[in-house]
Design a binder for these strands. Structure first.
Lengths: 345, 345
DNA sequence: TTTAGCACTCATCGCAATCGACTGCTAACC
DNA sequence: GGTTAGCAGTCGATTGCGATGAGTGCTAAA
């Protein structure tokens, strides 16, 4: 995992120190400041090194008489170093316990995103599986007043319900039998497959040799036709938005908030973004490495999980100048916790 | 509804024009500008009048050589005048139709808040009933894998579900019978009453002359014990946050956003706030009239609804400098639409 | 009571001077 | 060759100041 082999060890240490300092204080780092941090060299030497690092594209000067700020490439080297040096994240048994107590997948993911946000002081998110990879488990029809029917659908994604108002009237026992029939028929199939099957069989209705089944399918169709094809996404930490902006000038902070609030609303864009990030396991994507031009100033730390038939991702989104070490550890330990919880469910 | 009787008609007209101008342009209004709007008097006269209005607390000067800005009292007079002159809001049949299509109360209120936000370009909200005023309708237990049970609770508030993992094992038919028993037993009671009854009967378990009922109550207890005592609240329009701030200086806009984002997170505070507003029907509360010191610069336009056993409120929150006329009409027509929808459900 | 005229106030803008935090470069040094 | 002290140079940030102009309050006349 060690890229950038051309860079001497000392330069690399200095660059890391610079990145850390910038992350901590948010101001351009000067040669004098670095010299005071005990590298055994003077500020003049550091100036030479910094000039070289700038030539190589790792750092950048906002203006001639200013210190240096890491570029995305600089962050990249810093993060790569973190990832290669890193020990396995210490487990967080307390958090895992709390996740385990949450019943449905929805609740688990909601908790997870909340936990990530709380610990990282950034916006945390968790994303579940799409209909393609969600497995149908159970269906139940509950009669309500006035001929309406409550449909309860249980799948690996969790439980969803919906009230439908069918044209025909169904008796209580009929509903019960229909649900039983559909459950045994489709148990173990993906939701997408179930939906396809239902459409298919309805179109060739004559093949349905039993009136009960025909009615069952008509009832089921309204449940499955409107299934959201996108995976659920949980986002937490909107209130931290304005903390990230503190210390910087108001106009920048405002722009940052705008972008992120818009992102939060356009959840689908975030889903798309995460789909694009192909890497398995823990991944860090920094600023310009993201395709979306609006997100040039943000970084994404994500980790996929895939256990017990459930797949998805958890992660953090924040400014490129974020505490990567902390974020990486939190995301990693959370995704491991989710793995374990799903494994034993 | 006409307060401030001491104010001459002409002064009042001028004040209204000033408020409208300020709402529209967001800049202090000068005597010259007002003179150009055809009151038949010169700017000098207007200056005299404005000086008097300032003395009476209706307007305020940011600094000596600036125009006038309405105070909260000024807004109050303007709004009172609007309310007394106002015709009944024109109905919005399209919106009502859309609301009617939404099945559950949750969906109706969610739609309503969204509609309010969209139409008013402010943050819209809708708030439902608390457990005290929600009526129990129906209960269903659905067996899942590994002894877990899905509890589906239908009430006037909508449908909620929950997975419980009971210590005992229940058969499918037993669950069915238990649900039927509990449903017939409690149908029509408020959720709060149901909860109280269950606790009571469990504590005096010996009075339960039937093992089935005893088990049914134990199962039901876990469903009802954790019922959220607070009413549901739906908030929409967060993305409009930054539109309100545009045009003003970034620091102010940032502060505004901070406050509102925090409000959105602390939903309970908003609920409390709404409870404090006692007035029936349409109410406008302006800036300092709100107790909360953080909300000094915001106004609230709300309207209660109460039909078909459901009570609650819908409304708009925005800066004191908001388009009151528009907000009032929207909130009023929406709350009437909700009234009608609930009436015929 | 209204109005014209006028002096006065005060935020805003542009501009020049100053300050100071850093750098880049050169020349000496190990 | 790498390192360091010293110094000139750059450029953003801050400060001070005068001009500008929008808008008021006041006074005296209509």
């Amino acid at each position: 995992m060690t890229r950038h082999p051309e860079l001497p060890e000392r330069d690399r240490r200095i660059l890391s120190a610079l990145v850390q300092a910038y992350i901590e204080h948010g101001e351009p780092v000067s040669s004098l400041w670095l010299a005071s941090r005990g590298f055994g060299v003077s500020s003049a030497t550091l100036r030479n090194i910094l000039a070289r690092l700038e030539e190589q594209g790792y750092v950048h000067q906002p203006h001639t008489s200013a210190g240096r700020v890491p570029t995305d490439l600089g962050y990249r080297l810093y993060v790569d170093q973190l990832l290669s040096d890193r020990r396995v994240a210490r487990p967080a048994p307390l958090v895992e316990e709390r996740l385990r107590k949450a019943g449905t997948i929805d609740e688990i993911l909601s908790h997870a995103s909340h936990e990530i946000s709380r610990a990282s002081h950034q916006i945390g998110f968790a994303i579940g599986a799409s209909v393609e990879s969600t497995i149908f488990e159970h269906l139940e029809f509950v009669p309500l007043d006035a001929g309406k029917v409550l449909v309860v659908l249980v799948s690996t994604r969790g439980i969803t319900h919906k009230v439908v108002d069918p044209a025909e009237v169904y008796s209580g026992t009929e509903l019960h039998e229909a649900a039983n029939y559909l459950t045994t028929e489709f148990k173990g199939c993906s939701l997408a497959a179930v939906r396809a099957q239902i459409v298919e069989r309805l179109q060739a209705e004559q093949t349905l040799y039993d009136a009960l089944m025909a009615r069952a399918f008509r009832l089921a169709s309204s449940t499955f036709e409107a299934l959201d094809p996108q995976p659920a996404i949980y986002i937490q930490g909107t209130s931290l938005l304005f903390e990230l902006g503190s210390g910087e000038d108001p106009a920048t902070a405002l722009a940052t908030m705008k972008t992120l609030v818009r992102m939060m609303e356009e959840k689908m864009r975030l889903v798309q973004l995460l789909d694009d990030i192909s890497g398995a396991g823990l991944t860090v994507v920094i600023g310009s490495e993201l395709v979306d031009p609006e997100l040039q100033h943000f970084s994404l730390v994500t980790s996929r999980y895939a256990r017990g038939g459930r797949i998805g991702a958890v992660g953090v989104i924040g400014p490129t100048r974020m505490r990567y070490l902390r974020a990486i550890n939190i995301v990693d330990s959370l995704s491991r916790a989710i793995d374990r919880v799903f494994e034993t469910t």
